[in-house]
Design a protein around this nucleic acid. Structure first.
Length: 480
RNA sequence: CGGGGCGUGGCGCAGCCCGGUAGCGCGCACGGUUUGGGUCCGUGAGGCCCCCGGUUCAAAUCCGGGCGCCCCGACCA
C-alpha cells in the first residue's frame, strides 16, 4: 500500500512535484523531449486562469487577436538585444513543402517582432492610439532543462502588446497590467505575489523596464509568475512604428508587452500543495466539490443515488462545479484519498445514514481529519458549501501569506544574506550594486535578485554588497 | 555542451556478472466478496527484452557500433 502514497514534500520536493503532476492527472509525458501533454484536469485549471485574466483584460479595453506561429528569421534579428536574448533557444523551420525555404522561419518564442511589424502598418495617427492587443497562444523556447508547467519547450500563455503616444502612458499601462496579474494571482489563485521591478540583469531582452510578480513556492524557492515590460521606443524603432501627432510631427510609439503562462498552473500546485497532493483554490478548481456516494447492496444504492442526484442538481443550480464519483468497485476510502490527492476543495459524502437523517457530510481539503468534517442538513448543504468554498479560498491565501512572510528575512550585511539564502530563505537587503556584483552574488550564493519590491522601507541604507548608499531594497532568493 | 545513470507488458522494477521455458508489484478485464478512510480472493489479457551487426547449436544476457531518455551543472517564463 505504501506505493499509493505520494513522496512527502518535506522529503523530496521535486519528486513530490513530478509525481503529483502525473498522478493528479494534470499532465502526461509526451513523445517530444521537453514537451508535455496537458490532460483535461490540468487544462481546466488553465482554462480557469484564462477566463480570470481574459475578463480583466477586456474590462480594461484590450482586444484579442491572433498572429502567426512562424516568424521570418530576419524579424528576430531586428532588435539587437532581442536576438541576443532569444537566439540560443529558438526552434527554426528550414524546410517546408518538400524544399528548403529561402528564409528560415522561427517558431515564435514571443511575438514582439511580428506584432511590431503589424503595428507599424496599423498605426498612422495619434488617433489610432492607444492600441491594446492581447493574444492567447503557444510559444516555443528550446530550454535545456525542462519541468512540467514550470519550464517546457512549448508552453501556452497570453502575450499582451500595446502601443502608446507617450512614455508615461506606456508606463501606466505596464503597471496596470502588473496590477491585473497581481489581482488575479491573489484573488483567484490565492497566491500572495510580490510586485516589483526586475534588475537590469533580469530585464526582458530589449525592454526599458521589466516588472514582475514573484511568488514563494512551498520549498521556499521563488517563481516569477508573470511579467510586464515597458519596451520604451526600442521595438518601435526596430519595426518603424511611427505615428503622426496632433501637431503633425512623426514620432515613434511607446510600446509594452506582458505575459503570463501555463507556469501559473505549476505555481498553484507548488504554492498550495501538501503531502497528500494538490489543494486547489475553489476559484480555479475544475471541480469545486465532489460527491462520494456510499452504500452496500442494491437497496441502499438506489436510495443513496437518488439523493446524490438531487443534491448534484442543487449544486449545479447554484452555479457550483460539482462532480459525482460513480466509479464502481472502488471503495469510499479509496475515493476520499483520490480526490484529496487531486485537490478538490470540498467533498460531500452521502451514505445510507445520511439519506435516513436528511444529512450530508462535508469535508474540506484544507483542513484534514475530524476538524474539517461536518454534518449538515441536506436542506442547507448548498448554502453551507458556498460559504465553505469562500472560506477555503481565503484560508489558502492566508496560509500561503503566512508561509511567505515567515521566510523572508532582512539582511544588513552580505554575511547575513549568505546565511539566510543558505537556509533556503529569501533575503531582503539594500542594493546598489553593479551587474557584476549581482553576478557575483549569484555565483557565491545561488540566489538572484527577484525584484525591487514596490513596497519599500522609508529609510535609506547601505548596499549589502558594495557598501554604497542605496535607495532601495531588493529581494534575493533561489528561483525556478 | 561537461559529469553520472538508465533503456525489459500501460507504469515501477527484477533477471544480465555465470547464455538455454521472460518474471514480480501496481494498473487493466471478468467473477465473487467488500464498501462511513487506500477491501480481499480467484481467473485472464497484455512483451519488436531500444536499434543494427557479430560470436554461438542457442543471446534480454557476451562483443562492437548507433539511437533515445533521465539526473547533476552552465542558460531560462
Amino acid at each position: 500500500m505504501s506505493e499509493q502514497a505520494v513522496t512527502a514534500q518535506s522529503e523530496d520536493f521535486s519528486s513530490w512535484y513530478n509525481e503529483i503532476v502525473y498522478r493528479a492527472d494534470l499532465a502526461a509525458p509526451s513523445p517530444v523531449r521537453g514537451c508535455v501533454i496537458i490532460k483535461p484536469y490540468g487544462y481546466e485549471i488553465w482554462e480557469g486562469i484564462k477566463s480570470g485574466l481574459d475578463r480583466r483584460f477586456k474590462a480594461t479595453g484590450h482586444q484579442n487577436a491572433y498572429f502567426p506561429l512562424f516568424i521570418p528569421e530576419s524579424y528576430i534579428k531586428r532588435e539587437a538585444q532581442h536576438v541576443e536574448g532569444f537566439s540560443p533557444e529558438l526552434a527554426v523551420v528550414t524546410h517546408a513543402g518538400g524544399k528548403e525555404l529561402e528564409e528560415p522561419l522561427v517558431v515564435r518564442p514571443t511575438s514582439e517582432t511580428v506584432i511590431g511589424e503589424a503595428f507599424s502598418d496599423w498605426i498612422q495617427s495619434y488617433r489610432d492610439l492607444p492600441l491594446l492587443i492581447n493574444q492567447w497562444s503557444n510559444v516555443v523556447r528550446w530550454e535545456l532543462r525542462t519541468r512540467p508547467f514550470l519550464r517546457t519547450a512549448e508552453f501556452l500563455w497570453q502575450e499582451g502588446h500595446t502601443a502608446h503616444a507617450t512614455h508615461d502612458e506606456a508606463e501606466e499601462e505596464t503597471l496596470q497590467m502588473l496590477d491585473i496579474y497581481a489581482d488575479f494571482a491573489i484573488e483567484d489563485a490565492a497566491i500572495p505575489v510580490i510586485k516589483g521591478e526586475k534588475s537590469r540583469m533580469e530585464r526582458f531582452a530589449g525592454a526599458l523596464r521589466t516588472y514582475t510578480i514573484e511568488a514563494m513556492m512551498r520549498d521556499k524557492r521563488a517563481l516569477q509568475s508573470g511579467t510586464s515590460h515597458n519596451l520604451g521606443q526600442n521595438f518601435a524603432k526596430a519595426f518603424d512604428i511611427q505615428f503622426l501627432t496632433e501637431a503633425n510631427t512623426q514620432e515613434y510609439c511607446w510600446t509594452t508587452s506582458w505575459g503570463l503562462s501555463t507556469r501559473m498552473v505549476g505555481a498553484v500546485v507548488m504554492t498550495h500543495g501538501d503531502d497528500k497532493g494538490l489543494r486547489l483554490p475553489p476559484k480555479l478548481a475544475p471541480y469545486q466539490l465532489v460527491i462520494v456516494p456510499i452504500y452496500r447492496r442494491d437497496a441502499q444504492r438506489t436510495a443513496v443515488l437518488e439523493t446524490v442526484e438531487r443534491l448534484r442538481k442543487s449544486f449545479e443550480a447554484a452555479n457550483l462545479r460539482v462532480h459525482v464519483d460513480l466509479r464502481e468497485g472502488q471503495s469510499p476510502g479509496f475515493k476520499f484519498n483520490d480526490w484529496e490527492m487531486r485537490g478538490v476543495p470540498l467533498r460531500v459524502e452521502i451514505g445510507p445514514k445520511d439519506v435516513e437523517n436528511n444529512n450530508a457530510v462535508l469535508a474540506r481539503r484544507d483542513v484534514m481529519g475530524r476538524e474539517g468534517k461536518q454534518f449538515v442538513s441536506q436542506d442547507d448543504v448548498v448554502a453551507v458549501a458556498r460559504e465553505l468554498l469562500v472560506d477555503i479560498q481565503r484560508n489558502l491565501l492566508e496560509d500561503a501569506r503566512e508561509f511567505r512572510d515567515a521566510h523572508i528575512q532582512d539582511a544588513s550585511s552580505y554575511d547575513e544574506l549568505r546565511a539566510i539564502v543558505a537556509e533556503g530563505e529569501w533575503a531582503r537587503a539594500f542594493w546598489d550594486g553593479s551587474d557584476d556584483d549581482e553576478l557575483a552574488v549569484k555565483d557565491e550564493t545561488g540566489a538572484t535578485i527577484r525584484c525591487f519590491p514596490f513596497e519599500q522601507p522609508d529609510a535609506q541604507g547601505a548596499c549589502v554588497y558594495s557598501g554604497r548608499s542605496a535607495e532601495k531594497v531588493a529581494l534575493f532568493a533561489k528561483a525556478y
